[in-house]
């Protein structure tokens, strides 16, 4: 008998990530994400070209509104939810987790690998979609294509950070509430993220969506927007990072300590 030496954490994280990406590539979620992304990109680009805009600034504003609605208001919820909410829960429900936890892979490496696989798909798809929108909207105006690029990249960065945060939230709920992962993650995103992003006053700061919209440079909207505090870009970025780490850390602890449903036949 010659079992191999204990693999390094980096090796196991990479192996878990690769396996999860392979499963995404073979599953339906990636296709569903691509369909949603295509519809949003096509919708924003079509709206920009069909709309009548007075000047270049109006065009830029229309594109920004489209990005806000399509990406910050829709896809940034959908894609992390699709890819992250089931990474642990579906293994438990499908009773395939046995194969993974019987390997010399720490539970932390297991959760990290799965989280990385989720954001490795969600973030590039979102950023790629935003860049496609930029290209599609400004393809007829080369000067705007260049001039508006920094703003577009700022939005892409904010959306990427927010997607990472939402992926951590979805993975956490998938590990905590295995049998109701989708419902609990949806409730969290709908109430605490989408709902609070519209309420007046400082309570809006609890919504990472609002924080990300500030990082992206969007104007405040919603009820009593004028009494809602602004968030400086640096503080917004740090807040998003800290909240992501908080939920990711909770997810790691949950996965590391839970017996999941091995206590059931």
């Amino acid at each position: 008998m010659s079992a191999p030496p204990v693999p390094s954490a980096a090796h196991t994280v990479a192996a878990v990530t690769r396996l999860q990406l392979l499963r995404f590539a073979r599953g339906k979620k990636l296709r569903l994400a691509l369909v949603a992304l295509t519809l949003v990109v096509a919708g924003v680009v079509t709206a920009r070209h069909l709309g009548e805009h007075a000047d270049a600034a109006a065009v830029a504003e229309a594109v920004r509104s489209g990005l806000r609605l399509g990406f910050l208001g829709l896809l940034v919820y959908l894609l992390p939810f699709l890819f992250a909410s089931g990474v642990i829960a579906e293994e438990v429900e499908g009773r395939t987790l046995s194969f993974l936890v019987a390997r010399p892979v720490s539970r932390a490496a297991l959760a990290t690998g799965k989280y990385l696989a989720a954001i490795a798909l969600a973030v590039p798809l979102l950023v790629g979609g935003i860049l496609l929108v930029h290209l599609g909207c400004f393809v007829t105006t080369p000067e705007a294509l260049v001039a508006e690029l920094p703003e577009t990249l700022r939005i892409a960065g904010a959306v990427a950070l927010l997607a990472s945060c939402y992926a951590a939230i979805c993975m956490l709920w998938g590990a905590v509430a295995v049998e109701a992962a989708g419902i609990v993650a949806t409730l969290h995103l709908a109430i605490l993220e989408f709902g609070l992003s519209l309420v007046p006053g400082p309570i809006r700061l609890l919504s990472m969506n609002y924080v990300a919209s500030q990082l992206a440079g969007f104007e405040r909207t919603g009820m009593f927007a004028d009494i809602t505090p602004d968030v400086p870009p640096l503080a917004a970025g740090l807040t998003l990072g800290a909240v992501t780490l908080f939920f990711f850390g909770l997810g790691l602890v949950t996965v590391a300590t839970s017996e999941f449903r091995f206590s059931k036949a």
Binding site: A3, P4, P5, V6, P7, T12, A15, V16, R18, L19, L22, R23, R26, G27, G94, R95, T96, S98, F99, L100, A102, R103, P104, V105
Partner: peptide, 29 residues
Amino acid sequence: RRIGLCPEADAMYDDLSALEFVASMAELS
């Protein structure tokens, strides 16, 4: 690393080939 487990449940990654499945498990080891 010294344990091999064959669970009772007839549950596998149905979208993967047997080679992909077993190779992934070896990689994890």
